[in-house]
Amino acid sequence: MGLIGEEKKPLAIFGVVAISLAAALVMQGNTSVELILFSILQYFATIGPVALGLGLTMIAREFDISVGSTMSVAGCIAVVASTSDPYLGAACGIGVGLLIGLSQGVLVTGLGLSSISVSLGFLITLAGFAYVVTGNMTIPLDHADVTSAINAPVLGIFSFRSIFAIACFAIASFIFLKTRAGVELIATGSDPTAAATAGVRTTRIVVIVFMISGGLSAAAGVFLTYGLSVASPSGLTDILVPAISAAIIGGVSLTGGRGTPIGIALGALTLCLLNAGLNALGVSPVAQQVVLAFVLFTVAVAAAPQLYRIIPQRS
């Protein structure tokens, strides 16, 4: 399948960013390696699962822009439902996310609607629903033990949240590489008609990737909410742009049919490295945006088909 080849570019970008930041931090004399790695992985725990879900929909030539609202509403539902049992709250939040994904997948495939239109509708509706669920109030999580446990360092640099995110990518990569699902997803995204003719059940694939996207966004939202010990109707973070950026840096094509979970993980990690590393260096957020824009621009240029016609190829 040449999947490893698809991960070369994100790996190269990740390597360059990692080495540059490590060198800058060493020159600065910052030796808090453990704390910086913990921070990087905490951010990865927030954007990683969402980028994975969104990236999978992009590989299938669809687009789930409702991830931010799904994340927010799932966190709110989890806290509201967690009064007696935080596990029940988490199950409710993630269950709602799966249901949101299922609804979107069915609407997109069943009615032949554009996924952008459908997920935009969900984005707006869910944002309003979060205000209804919380009564436009920030709601604290009354389980301090859960907050402590979810953020507690494991082996110095990990936490429950980051281990969950890493596990998601590991499972997705295994399924992608070792089962027919990966091939069928690539085929669906490359040419849905040809894939259907070849016997791929493209409808089922699209519905499943939307469910995965909804479920992962909801899980990320629930664990972020539990980790911050508060649910906010206005959303705890801006996730859509970082998630799209991670997927693109990770080699996912906006036109579908290209990308891998490992590539998306590398894209998300690159973003986390940039974010946490530049924060540790004390670079202003405005400058950070410029650096991120430069990385995205470089990735876009590197993927431009015309570029390889301009650059002379070695024979």
Binding site: N30, S32, S39, T46, G227, L228, T237, N279, A280, G282
Partner: peptide, 24 residues
């Protein structure tokens, strides 16, 4: 003074707090 700003994003600020702790 080293300033870090966040666009009214509580999760990002929580992460910046972790980054700030790393700067000691």
């Amino acid at each position: 003074v080293t300033q870090l700003t966040s666009p009214f994003d509580p999760a990002l600020q929580a992460q910046q707090l972790d980054d700030a702790i790393g700067q000691k």
